[in-house]
């Protein structure tokens, strides 16, 4: 029987992990070790529920409820001087507990501080768009939808941004293989030539490490090279390589005129 491979996370895995290995943690510190962050957190806590907050690598991370996001960002922009939304995206935890973690990376230029607002949503749940607050969310939310399939309520133009509009599947999900799925490998053939041309053309090859031993033009027939265009039977004799170095390099002392060939066609 073939070994069972989980289908909910098909990304690369470490092939060996010491059974006694315990991964260390990036240190977290309490929020009150930093005055600015502490007062910001108080301001957020006064109006909204904060589930967890800590400082990690010089930045505060605040976990809130999903439905509070618009209010929290509005408060941060208007009262706490966090005037820029640098980044917004999701982390796929579907394999673990069927949730997505959404993060909003905020920057205050006056305070020189960065805060990351985070919350969890269930698979299939939509988020509230913050495009009205920060125009930069317009494209980020579209990218998040494109990559994870998470829709943003109230977004003016919820369409794919990087992938084609008629694409199927969301590439950054852990269930989506690196080389693309069935749809991806036939996408261009189906679109340009139609499904009936599938057999003639074949699927798109997305594996860069793939070696076709009958392809004489892509270094795949090392040792069995044949001139371009020759029909390959698979029974070619091995070309024995000999190197000039074996006979010494600096000046050629022996030249075997019988085996060497003078090229007569410069266009060969």
């Amino acid at each position: 029987m073939r070994a069972y491979t989980p289908k909910d996370d098909v990304q690369a895995k470490a092939y060996y992990t010491d059974r006694y290995y315990v991964a260390p943690q990036v240190p977290k510190s309490e929020v009150d070790t930093d005055e600015v962050f502490a007062s910001d957190l108080e301001a957020i806590k006064a109006k909204f529920e904060v589930k967890e907050a800590f400082i990690q690598v010089e930045q505060m991370v605040v976990y809130i409820n999903a439905h509070d996001i618009y209010g929290v960002l509005e408060l941060m922009r208007d009262e706490l001087e966090y005037t820029q939304l640098s980044e917004l995206s999701a982390i796929d935890w579907l394999a673990k507990d069927n949730t997505f973690e959404i993060f909003y990376q905020m920057l205050s230029m006056k305070k020189r501080k960065r805060i990351r607002i985070k919350y969890f949503i269930q698979n299939g749940q939509a988020v509230d768009s913050v495009e009205k607050l920060f125009r930069s969310a317009d494209w980020s939310e579209r990218e998040m939808y494109d990559m994870f399939g998470i829709e943003a309520n109230g977004h003016p133009f919820m369409k794919r941004i990087l992938m084609p509009y008629d694409w199927q599947g969301h590439p950054l999900l852990k269930t989506y293989p690196l080389q693309g799925d069935e749809f991806a490998s036939w996408y261009e053939v189906d679109k340009i030539y139609g499904k009936e041309a599938r057999e003639e053309i074949g699927p798109e090859i997305r594996d860069t490490a793939r070696v076709d031993r009958y392809d004489s033009q892509r270094f795949a027939r090392l040792g069995f090279e044949v001139p371009k265009g020759t029909e390959i039977t698979g029974e070619e004799e091995r070309n024995v390589d000999s190197y000039q170095e074996e006979e010494g390099v600096f000046m050629i002392k022996k030249l075997n005129k019988e085996t060497s060939k003078i090229v007569d066609d410069p266009q060969r």
């Binding site: 990304q11 690369a12 895995k13 470490a14 992990t17 991964a23 260390p24 943690q25 990036v26 977290k28 990690q56 690598v57 930045q59 991370v61 640098s86 980044e87 995206s89 982390i91 993060f103 990376q105 920057l107 960065r114 990351r116």
Partner: peptide
């Protein structure tokens, strides 16, 4: 180690940020 980091640097074009979430694995 397990943890998260967002680091912004000033590239010639602007703020170039890398957000990394590590779960203690080599990837």
């Amino acid at each position: 180690p397990v943890g998260e980091v967002y680091v912004a640097t000033e590239s010639p074009k602007g703020e170039l940020g890398y957000f990394i979430n590590s779960q203690g694995g080599p990837y």
